[in-house]
Measured scan of single mutants.
Amino acid sequence: MIINNLKLIREKKKISQSELAALLEVSRQTINGIEKNKYNASLQLALKIAYYLNTPLEDIFQWQ
């Protein structure tokens, strides 16, 4: 199981879903879906999320 901390980290950094989506060149709905565990981010997208949030990938998506 993967624990998804994207919403928590994004909100801590005061970045909206729309802002993050624009940086990543995806839709806001994609970010929303990832945060609600409706969609799994591809490895490429997960790495981009970590880069733009300046946060280690394993802090955003944790295996349990």
Rank of each mutant, 00 (worst) to 15 (best):
56 P>Q: 06
60 I>Y: 02
55 T>N: 02
19 E>W: 06
26 V>P: 01
7 K>M: 07
37 N>I: 03
23 L>S: 09
7 K>F: 06
11 E>N: 09
16 S>N: 05
15 I>M: 15
2 I>H: 08
62 Q>E: 09
6 L>T: 02
8 L>T: 15
42 S>M: 03
20 L>S: 00
53 L>Q: 00
48 K>T: 04
44 Q>W: 11
28 R>P: 15
25 E>C: 15
60 I>V: 07
13 K>M: 14
59 D>R: 08
44 Q>N: 12
16 S>C: 06
10 R>S: 02
1 M>T: 10
10 R>P: 01
25 E>V: 07
19 E>P: 02
45 L>P: 00
54 N>R: 10
40 N>I: 15
18 S>G: 12
39 Y>L: 15
27 S>A: 05
5 N>Q: 05
38 K>Q: 14
57 L>G: 04
13 K>H: 11
61 F>Q: 01
39 Y>N: 07
33 G>E: 14
35 E>M: 03
48 K>E: 04
56 P>V: 05
8 L>W: 08
3 I>P: 06
24 L>D: 00
3 I>E: 07
55 T>E: 10
9 I>N: 02
8 L>R: 14
59 D>G: 06
46 A>G: 10
3 I>Y: 09
53 L>M: 06
50 A>N: 01
32 N>K: 13
56 P>I: 04
46 A>T: 05
40 N>S: 14
44 Q>K: 14
11 E>A: 09
22 A>S: 12
56 P>N: 08
11 E>T: 11
30 T>F: 14
35 E>L: 04
48 K>I: 04
1 M>R: 10
29 Q>C: 13
38 K>E: 14
35 E>S: 03
2 I>K: 09
17 Q>K: 06
30 T>Q: 09
29 Q>R: 14
35 E>A: 03
60 I>K: 00
7 K>E: 08
57 L>F: 07
62 Q>K: 11
11 E>D: 08
28 R>H: 09
26 V>A: 02
59 D>V: 09
36 K>Y: 06
35 E>Q: 03
40 N>L: 11
18 S>Q: 13
21 A>G: 06
9 I>H: 06
11 E>F: 07
49 I>T: 02
3 I>K: 13
30 T>S: 05
47 L>Q: 13
36 K>A: 13
60 I>T: 03
51 Y>L: 09
42 S>Q: 05
19 E>R: 14
44 Q>T: 14
51 Y>W: 10
32 N>T: 09
44 Q>G: 13
37 N>S: 10
38 K>R: 13
13 K>Q: 12
13 K>G: 05
8 L>C: 15
3 I>S: 10
48 K>N: 06
4 N>P: 03
46 A>R: 11
41 A>V: 15
29 Q>N: 13
2 I>A: 08
32 N>P: 01
5 N>P: 00
56 P>C: 07
44 Q>L: 10
42 S>D: 10
32 N>Q: 15
4 N>C: 09
9 I>W: 07
32 N>H: 11
40 N>M: 14
27 S>E: 06
18 S>K: 13
34 I>R: 01
19 E>D: 11
10 R>T: 03
2 I>N: 06
32 N>D: 15
34 I>N: 01
40 N>F: 12
25 E>G: 15
21 A>R: 02
6 L>R: 01
45 L>M: 09
12 K>F: 09
52 Y>W: 11
2 I>G: 05
57 L>A: 05
22 A>C: 12
23 L>Y: 14
56 P>R: 09
26 V>R: 02
6 L>Q: 01
49 I>Q: 00
22 A>K: 13
5 N>R: 08
52 Y>T: 10
14 K>G: 15
9 I>G: 01
57 L>K: 03
22 A>P: 00
29 Q>L: 09
45 L>Y: 01
11 E>G: 05
41 A>D: 01
12 K>Q: 14
20 L>D: 00
37 N>G: 15
59 D>W: 07
48 K>R: 13
17 Q>W: 03
32 N>F: 05
56 P>S: 08
42 S>P: 14
7 K>A: 11
26 V>S: 02
5 N>D: 04
30 T>G: 01
33 G>F: 12
23 L>V: 13
59 D>N: 09
24 L>R: 01
17 Q>I: 13
58 E>H: 13
43 L>V: 10
42 S>K: 05
29 Q>W: 13
1 M>D: 06
16 S>P: 05
6 L>I: 06
64 Q>T: 11
43 L>M: 12
40 N>Y: 12
15 I>T: 04
15 I>P: 02
47 L>D: 04
35 E>N: 02
62 Q>S: 10
10 R>Y: 04
61 F>I: 03
16 S>A: 06
28 R>E: 15
10 R>I: 05
57 L>C: 07
37 N>E: 05
15 I>R: 02
34 I>T: 02
28 R>V: 15
40 N>G: 14
14 K>V: 05
34 I>A: 02
49 I>D: 00
11 E>Y: 06
37 N>R: 08
44 Q>F: 11
21 A>T: 02
15 I>K: 04
19 E>I: 07
10 R>G: 03
10 R>W: 06
9 I>D: 01
18 S>E: 13
4 N>M: 05
43 L>H: 10
35 E>R: 02
60 I>N: 01
27 S>D: 13
27 S>P: 14
29 Q>S: 14
50 A>W: 03
52 Y>G: 03
11 E>K: 11
21 A>W: 04
24 L>P: 00
32 N>I: 15
1 M>E: 06
47 L>H: 10
32 N>E: 15
23 L>P: 00
42 S>V: 05
5 N>T: 03
51 Y>E: 09
48 K>W: 05
29 Q>F: 08
28 R>G: 05
47 L>E: 11
2 I>W: 13
30 T>P: 01
24 L>V: 15
12 K>E: 12
1 M>Q: 10
22 A>E: 11
17 Q>G: 04
22 A>W: 06
50 A>K: 02
20 L>Y: 02
45 L>E: 02
2 I>S: 08
61 F>N: 00
60 I>M: 05
8 L>D: 13
13 K>D: 03
58 E>G: 13
19 E>H: 11
4 N>G: 04
27 S>M: 03
39 Y>T: 11
31 I>D: 01
50 A>Q: 03
32 N>C: 08
45 L>F: 08
60 I>F: 03
37 N>Q: 08
41 A>F: 12
17 Q>H: 03
23 L>T: 07
13 K>V: 08
52 Y>C: 09
43 L>T: 08
34 I>W: 04
33 G>D: 15
35 E>F: 03
25 E>D: 14
36 K>F: 06
3 I>L: 13
35 E>G: 03
29 Q>H: 14
45 L>H: 01
47 L>A: 10
31 I>A: 01
45 L>Q: 05
38 K>I: 14
47 L>S: 09
54 N>Q: 14
8 L>S: 14
5 N>A: 06
25 E>W: 06
5 N>K: 07
28 R>A: 13
23 L>I: 10
63 W>D: 04
38 K>T: 13
